[in-house]
Computed example of a mutant assay.
Amino acid sequence: MKEKIQELLKKENYAFDAEKWKSIENVPFFFNADTTQQLNKIKKNMGVAKGIYIFSDSNDKILYIGKGAPIYNRIRRHFAKLKQSSSSHHSLCTSQEIPSSITIHWVEIEQPDTREIVEHMLAYTLKPAYKKWYMA
């Protein structure tokens, strides 16, 4: 089943390929004075694109898969959670720490139903480390 889903994603040009998807590398994932500049850079690159985004670490490990319409608004909310955190400790889950920087990959998908399906198909085939991205 997994192979058939991967074939379908590839046929529709939604299969994750770091070379083909747009990306921003070395995004520091902590809140400080430079965070606003990072968010402006992300907004400039993404614009109002609707689609799927993937967070990966420096070892290309898939951390999280999400969708947004626009993607930037969703990513901005992730950073807003960092700002709300009262301590410097932030994590994806209680047992592991978040990397200091991530790469954000994205592909544009206009149709909401297609975004929903592709997000689930990518999560099934890529097995991200985290199903939820939250603050501890």
Rank of each mutant, 00 (worst) to 15 (best):
V107W: 01
A136P: 15
E19Q: 12
N13W: 07
N13G: 03
A33K: 14
S88T: 05
D34W: 15
N32M: 13
Q6A: 04
M135N: 08
I71M: 03
F55A: 02
D113V: 05
K2Y: 07
C93Y: 09
K61E: 14
S56F: 01
L92K: 01
T103H: 06
G47D: 10
Q84V: 06
K22F: 03
L82W: 07
I54R: 00
S100I: 05
S23G: 08
F79R: 03
V107F: 05
T35G: 06
L8K: 04
G66H: 01
I54V: 02
E12M: 14
K132E: 14
H90F: 15
G47S: 14
D60W: 03
Y53W: 09
K44I: 09
I52R: 00
D34M: 15
T103W: 03
K10P: 02
G66E: 02
P128F: 13
A136Q: 15
I65F: 04
E110S: 11
R74Y: 07
Y64K: 02
M121P: 00
W133A: 00
K132A: 14
L122E: 03
E116N: 13
G66D: 03
Y72P: 04
E25L: 14
S86Y: 12
N40F: 05
S23Q: 13
C93S: 14
G47Y: 06
K81H: 12
M121A: 05
I75E: 03
K11P: 02
H90A: 15
A136F: 15
T36W: 13
S91K: 06
K50C: 09
A69L: 07
A129Y: 14
M1E: 09
Q84T: 09
M135F: 06
R115C: 13
F55H: 06
P112Y: 05
S23D: 10
V107S: 05
F79T: 10
E3Y: 15
E108C: 11
K10V: 11
A15V: 13
K131Q: 14
F55P: 00
I65M: 04
